[in-house]
Write a protein that binds this DNA or RNA. Structure first.
Lengths: 222, 222, 222, 222
DNA sequence: AATGAATGAGCATTCATTCAT
DNA sequence: TATGAATGAATGCTCATTCAT
């Protein structure tokens, strides 16, 4: 899960594996395991011992690097929230016409949630805690601003071209898209229990993807 | 939540509150407090002692009636899930024309989620646990079937009258509506943290309500 | 288990079964169930709830008649110790010649232990508690005296007839016989685990019976 | 019980007692205290808190090393059962002639039970639990086999020399000896209560020791 | 005589965290 | 940098017993 995309670290990958003590590697390892545990069990349900056990190091190191269970949880949140926004920047939506751009953004959002259940679960968990941990992350707010700017730009261009309505709030639209992409992943278990359908089944997923795109475009279209 | 007494008990409602031994009252009291605690803290985060403390009885009674922490959690789920489906039946949507009926169903769904944060949180929590507790509840599946039947009927009538598209799956539509109603409540904390907006603010709520109805109708309309 | 031998109660057995409230029947029922529970679980391990559940009455009655868990345990002890001594009196050993009498006494002792595992277990349990409950039973000591008197008489007659040694203490002999009869029942589980043999198997029991008689007679013979 | 340190640790025995972190010492200490508690109170009657209190460490360490109350109880059983069989091997009974060897074995068995009341009580307790804990100990069965082999050898040599009967089963003989040695220790409280005699009184003990040897030899002799 | 409801004290166990090496 | 050992404060749960009816 969540292997580092970073190129800078790849260069000394060989020497790394030979080193006996590698703080960065140790931290990454802890974070990876912790992400799985927190996302699976929640903050209260997660066990520090369980995390430490599946790590290459000991419990002590976990405290050495992250200070506390909560500190580790925050670090996990930080990493996981960072990933999605970083990818959004790579989409080059501004190079597409408004409708295609919006379609692409929705599809990306849909796919990202579909593939990153850990992210979805952690957001869910964070909401149970009133988002108090995520508020501590300094970069959090600015990151989201960029997502809104993308939508703002799309809407402006769509309105200008006469394709879109002119009464849509970009944050509202973001919420609408998020809702449809998030819910079916985050609540797939109760959904499955209620209707005997697994929303992550390929056929259903494809249909849902179409539906979300369709509903979004119909909503913004003039 | 937990309205006082049903019809049969109505007569001695006054004397009831004075009685020292009243199992139903005791159970209701425990359930009420437990709903708040579980919804606020999650299953793992909830403390049996905390629940007992805010109860009129002792911790022992909690085990006397519900067997275990998990048993109590299941009882809470049962009660909370039962409430929404019961209300849906009172809407008499079948008496309205398809468009008005669908609008009414969406508004009801929106309002219910908006007003019952406990319900939303508990569903969220249940999903963290893979829905394993709700699956134990026998009545769960049949309850949801009735919700789908309502939508099915609406769609059929809308298609017949030429107002709606004929390629919409009722469960998909249910998912779409749920998504938009659920997400803004369940994830309102991270949403607020990200965009500095509280989605439960009256003005925003009214706008979201309109948006959800609008998006739904545009989606089904021919 | 342990039906009452008493004749006085037999007369109104019919009317008894018709009566709605029958204290004696209730007490007997409780005692029977309690004997099984205490002998199976020990004093600390026994559960008042478990006893009450298997009874025809409720937990309250158990306290009504026996005062406490310990009181009930004492009552069980009293009943169970009373049974064996009562039977010993029926043997008419004094009518047999010393060797035959001794053989008969040993066989009776062997058979009694073999058939009354509850008795053996309760004695065992009582010893774990330093015999403090049995000491409270007034009749206990006098009952045992009669058992010794039987042996004393046997030994005296055997010595007189020249069949037995004259240096044997009757209490020592009682201990010797008890040891051999008690141990194989009381410790049959560890014995079975250690040697893969179940000492209650019919063939083994017969052989042990022979052995105990043989060892006893060889010990007292001149 | 629990003799200080084995050979390897001998050198720093002094510094050891000063060390704050000494797992072996900690474990030994817990085991020692637990042996006393379990043997005095039984498995159900024993209190984890009571054990912890009399220890040099905390309750937590008890779980750290032994996992659970039952795990600790098993560890106690293992230690206590291991001790007796180990000592038996030191007797060099095979170097004595059959009669002297048997006498020596009986005396050793008598003395061991007489001196190790904890062992006797724990066996008793284990039988109340159907020997289910001791069956989990892997070494248990093989340990007992060696005890039987000793008796087998004695009997064979005695039969060969014409001193012993040839119809005695070694396990039966083991049971006979155990019975006489075990019972007077395990049931000394009820015995004392019944006859006003304490079987552990020196004079009585000496007489019983003679009696057991005598009864055994008379039983096997031709 | 009989009962379901109620209780406080206690019980085994777990947890996040820190210490000594 | 790294680690096994150690800990105090809870945590979920049970028990023998009593109350109100």
């Amino acid at each position: 899960m969540a292997r580092p995309a970073a190129s800078a670290e790849r260069n000394d990958a060989q020497s790394e594996s030979r080193r006996k003590y590698d703080p960065e590697q140790t931290k990454r390892n802890i974070l990876e395991v912790a992400t799985a545990e927190f996302s699976a069990m929640g903050l209260a349900g997660a066990r520090v011992d369980a995390i430490a056990e599946r790590t290459n190091t000991t419990k002590r190191m976990l405290y050495y690097y992250f200070g506390s269970k909560e500190g580790l949880y925050e670090a996990v949140l930080d990493k996981v929230y960072g990933d999605i926004r970083a990818l959004e920047l790579d989409l080059h939506i501004d190079e597409l016409d408004p409708t295609d751009g919006l379609r692409r953004l929705v599809e990306f959002t849909f796919d990202y949630h579909d593939r990153h259940r850990d992210f979805v679960r952690l957001v869910t968990i964070e909401n149970i805690h009133g988002a108090k941990y995520i508020e501590r992350l300094k970069t959090f707010r600015s990151r989201n601003a960029s997502a809104i700017r993308t939508i703002e730009d799309l809407l402006a261009r769509g309105v200008a071209s006469g394709a879109f309505r002119d009464d849509i709030d970009p944050i509202d639209l973001h919420l609408l898209i998020s809702s449809m992409c998030f819910h079916r992943v985050g609540n797939r278990h109760t959904f499955g229990a209620a209707f005997g359908r697994d929303p992550s089944h390929p056929r259903l997923r494809a249909r849902h993807r179409e539906m979300v795109v369709d509903a979004t475009l119909r909503f913004v279209k003039k």
